[in-house]
């Protein structure tokens, strides 16, 4: 059997992540619950944000969890892909925005 660091079943252990640090764990889950449940933004809007962040962050657990959550909330496939494109555009944009540093140095250093 091949062994990898990332196993799909690892996600089932997430709920017990506070076992060796119960106070911090409980506080994290309280915060996580508040941050991801409906507030001024709806639950589905937050799920789409989380899906885009999960994909940008390349987290397989979060991609699994939030694709399921989006499906569960009736989010359409094209809505999910649009959200991921926002994430992808942000990554491209923030890469290119850093090119201004290159340009700044070039302009200062070149004769």
């Amino acid at each position: 059997m091949s062994e990898t660091y990332y196993e799909r079943r690892d996600l089932e252990d997430f709920a017990y992540i506070g076992e060796y640090a119960p106070e911090a764990g409980a506080k994290f889950f309280d915060y996580y619950g508040v941050a991801t449940s409906a507030g001024v933004l709806t639950e589905r809007e937050k799920a789409l944000i989380a899906l885009a962040v999960a994909t940008v962050r390349h987290c397989p657990y979060c991609i699994d969890a939030y694709t399921h959550k989006c499906l569960s909330l009736g989010v359409a496939n094209d809505e999910m892909m649009e959200a991921v494109h926002v994430g992808a555009a942000m990554v491209a944009g923030d890469t290119l925005a850093h090119a201004t540093q290159i340009r700044k140095i070039i302009k200062k250093k070149e004769m």
Binding site: A38, K69, L71, G74
Partner: peptide, 17 residues
Amino acid sequence: PAGAFLPGSQAALESEY
């Protein structure tokens, strides 16, 4: 659900419907 997943919150789904 039209697939192998669980439904999300009833209130959120109702609002979307």
